[in-house]
């Protein structure tokens, strides 16, 4: 069944087409929700709510971009709206700006398990995790993130910097990333 046929079927409220669409995209979208949510149950709730929005707003899709991207945006916004209902999430965003965080120069190995990385992301505090998800994975700019989360743009930047630092530490601790070389050793070698 082509994507065009699925879209037409969904516009006619066809259960078969809706199921086909759901089957195609729900695994990826659940992974998206899972990165934002506290647990799998919350993620499934977000997914369900998101897909109901997708089907009910199907007529607004105008074929100007990728259909998957359109669905993904709806799902992400649904996740954010769910998180914003949580008081702890709002409080976690109010942190001081990060400064002076070093960025290691080593390149990361290309072969790591996807699931391990996702689980490591989920270890991050919810504020860090959200900004990291939106910026590094979903590709939103800090300006867009600030609007979505009702925070300052600078806050988004600092949150992201801290989140990235923390995630690297976690990945290293879990031996998914190798330990960085000592800076002094590097400088000594230059001499």
């Amino acid at each position: 069944m082509t994507e065009e046929a699925i879209l037409q079927g969904c516009l006619k409220n066809s259960a078969a087409a809706q199921r086909e669409l759901y089957n195609r995209y729900s695994p990826k979208m659940l992974a998206v929700c899972y990165r934002f949510a506290h647990n799998r149950e919350d993620a499934e709730d977000m997914l369900q709510e998101g897909f109901i929005k997708v089907f009910s707003q199907m007529h607004t899709f105008q074929n100007k971009g990728a259909f998957e991207g359109w669905i993904r945006r709806i799902i992400v916004h649904t996740c954010i709206n769910n998180l914003k209902k949580n008081k702890r999430f709002n409080e976690s965003l109010d942190i001081v700006h990060a400064s002076g965080v070093q960025v290691r120069e080593e390149s990361v190995p290309s072969i790591v398990q996807a699931k391990q990385i996702v689980e490591c992301i989920r270890i991050l505090p919810i504020g860090y995790r959200t900004v990291l998800n939106l910026y590094a994975i979903e590709g939103y700019s800090h300006k867009e993130i600030a609007e979505m989360l009702d925070i300052e743009e600078s806050t988004s930047r600092s949150q992201y910097t801290r989140a990235k630092q923390m995630l690297e530490d976690i990945l290293i601790r879990k031996k998914i990333l190798p330990k960085p070389r000592e800076k002094s050793t590097w400088l000594f070698a230059i001499r």
Binding site: N13, A15, Q18, R19, Y22, S26, P27, K28, L30, A31, Y34, R35, R40, A43, E44, L47, Q48, F51, I52, F55, S56, S107, V108, S110, V112, Q113, A114, K115, I117, V118, I121, L132, Y135, A136, I137, G139, K164, E168
Partner: peptide, 30 residues
């Protein structure tokens, strides 16, 4: 490079929802 890695790996990751998710969607739509 770090973000690229995150993006690639998270894109590879898929989770299959339980059947009750679809039932909830279907019942809400039909």
């Amino acid at each position: 490079e770090f973000e690229q890695l995150l993006r690639e790996k998270t894109e590879q990751y898929k989770m299959y929802p339980s059947e009750k998710v679809w039932k909830g969607i279907h019942s809400s739509l039909h």
